[in-house]
Design a protein around this nucleic acid. Sequence first.
DNA 1: CTGTATCCGTGTTGATACTG
DNA 2: CAGTATCAACACGGATACAG
Lengths: 226, 226
Amino acid sequence: MNIPVKKRAYQDGCAVAHALDIIGDRWAMPIMRELMLGPKRFTDLRAGLPGISANVLTQRLDELEAASILVRRRLPPPAASQIYELTDWGRESEILFQTLGRWACRSPTMEPGKPMSTVSVILSMRTMIDRARLGDLDAVVGFAFGEETFRATIADGDCRIDRGDISDANVIFRGDQNALVALLYGGARPEHVSDALTIEGDKALARRFAGLFPLPPKAPSTCRAD
Amino acid sequence: MNIPVKKRAYQDGCAVAHALDIIGDRWAMPIMRELMLGPKRFTDLRAGLPGISANVLTQRLDELEAASILVRRRLPPPAASQIYELTDWGRESEILFQTLGRWACRSPTMEPGKPMSTVSVILSMRTMIDRARLGDLDAVVGFAFGEETFRATIADGDCRIDRGDISDANVIFRGDQNALVALLYGGARPEHVSDALTIEGDKALARRFAGLFPLPPKAPSTCRAD
DNA sequence: CTGTATCCGTGTTGATACTG
DNA sequence: CAGTATCAACACGGATACAG
């Protein structure tokens, strides 16, 4: 275990500065994001964070543990593998991601189309879903991205989206999560969805679901170099 | 003007990753914070950001301008000086600071007592004030930190805090903003406030105002090294 | 006085290779 | 699988010099 050497810190009593001291380092928030829907192993984390190197991931995990944002746990045999899991307080940071996402998706310099991790896609749906459009919809929508499955449970004007079994889903989106993003936010119609995504089950429900994610208007660009 | 060279970026479609690309660099958010209550000049920014160096500030200002978060304006003669001002969208990022501040002030590793800029103190009041405690309070509370004055206008169950004239204030807190922080969040009584802060006017109102800022409970520390 | 540009020492980051 | 070691590239902070 490394001695958590003193790092560069803002010497500032502002709580925001403290937040930046503990989660402002490069990769810290993406790591937290990947853990938001449940614990993961070292290698699973790397898979969801293309570009991170092993040593940086190790260091960030140490720092996030020191900040009480996550804990390491060793799985009981026969797994014998370590997992990283957010603490309660770490999980409460989801509001940070939602606020940041809502603000940033209006950025004039945001260009869509880059790949997203499965966790990002689920969290973006949690963030952007317009509950006012749910009406009295009552349904289970499933998502199957590779080996991972998630379910949206819609009832009583609310919608919860989590990891979970999808055998009882009324409709299942199966395939590449990036194709789902194009459908939800890109304005494509479920009838014309790409080959990377298949829709199994209630097609009308799929269409209804895809319309639950309005994008806010872009902020104007004020950069002279535009 | 520098060519805005491509910098290290997350290659990630997630809006949060885009946010981190544009405001995740060191000093970017503290700079935005300092501009949140109105435009400032280069030197005023440095004064509110102890530790930043001139070249880093220049670079961040360029990047924030390219992201349409702020604009440079040249004041009309005889001032002839440049100022940096948030755009509308940049100003809308205040919700980020509030969310981050509310989450981070529960951090088990947050230690109080470090100095804060005047802007930080005002923003923290905007963030932490408990409007449910306002009742039918109707008053103007003034703050005089050095040459800067701010006013809290309390009426109709709401409270707005901004830069502004305080000649009509019912009570004025004058002196060091850090002493005010100790009073609001440290539990000190206005009667025993330090020499660094004086209270002019309605002492009962000062006491009432100081009780409007409850701190949420700390999150438990889970770090084994504690 | 108000910034901006350049140099430089240092620490952080990132890619590759490697070990338990 | 879960990291550690090594090294190169870059970013940061400080100082200084310079331009309007």
